[in-house]
């Protein structure tokens, strides 16, 4: 199969969404912090929507236990999530610009790695990491939008996953309570619901639809 040209890919989006609106997506850079069940799904949704540039950050490698919910394939087990997700996105959307950082995000590199982004998605696993990133971005990177997630484990109702607007720059998706630490496992369907809330919130922010 021949790879479609960049113009063909763009025209397909312009015809459906409108050139002016789509250009806003093309001009946006989104950072995805953590490439597990949330992050891998967020990144793919954003690439499909035609977001111009993605910054993908994760230190970890793909494990067989990730395949029940994360957007990787068995043949990618053992590889870095950054490399594998870049490959998977390029197969869907060959002209999305992608920068990868195979590192653990922390107070020493948040600023350097995240400052090129217009919008930051928090997609970590650990509650403490979520909390630290929110504090840092809200204090030190006050012009960025942050879309975070909390509570998507288990078989609770799909309808309990919601998006809340906490401040003008901080949105939080999830049910707020379903902790993976309480013995509940993560199901692809419910994690994807939460990831979709996050990705959709990003598209709405770019489209200046700031309400929820």
């Amino acid at each position: 199969m021949k790879i479609p040209s960049e113009n063909e890919m763009k025209k397909a989006l312009y015809d459906r969404i409108g050139k002016e609106h789509q250009r806003k997506f093309e001009d946006t850079t989104v950072a995805v912090c953590g490439l597990g069940g949330l992050g891998s799904n967020i990144a793919i949704s954003l690439a499909r929507a035609g977001i111009g540039k993605l910054i993908l950050i994760d230190f970890d490698k793909i494990d067989i236990t990730n395949l029940n919910r994360q957007q990787y394939k068995f043949c990618q087990i053992g590889r870095y999530k950054t490399d594998a997700l870049l490959e998977n996105i390029k197969e869907i959307s060959p002209y999305t610009k992608i920068q990868t950082h195979t590192v653990k995000l922390n107070e020493n590199n948040y600023y350097t790695l995240l400052s090129p982004a217009d919008i930051i998605c928090e997609a970590f696993d650990a509650a403490e990491e979520k909390s630290k990133l929110v504090d840092f971005v809200m204090e030190k990177m006050a012009d960025k939008y942050l879309v975070a997630a909390s509570g998507m484990a288990g078989l609770g109702s799909a309808n309990s996953i919601k998006t809340k607007k906490i401040t003008n720059y901080f949105y939080l998706c999830g049910d707020g309570v379903s902790d993976v630490g309480n013995g509940d496992t993560l199901y692809s369907s419910r994690v994807m619901l939460c990831a979709s809330h996050q990705a959709h919130t990003v598209l709405r922010i770019i489209s200046e639809k700031f309400d929820i």
Partner: peptide, 10 residues
């Protein structure tokens, strides 16, 4: 004041 609690999973 609104206090948001994070839980694990992602």
């Amino acid at each position: 004041i609104e206090i948001v609690s994070f839980v694990g999973g992602g």
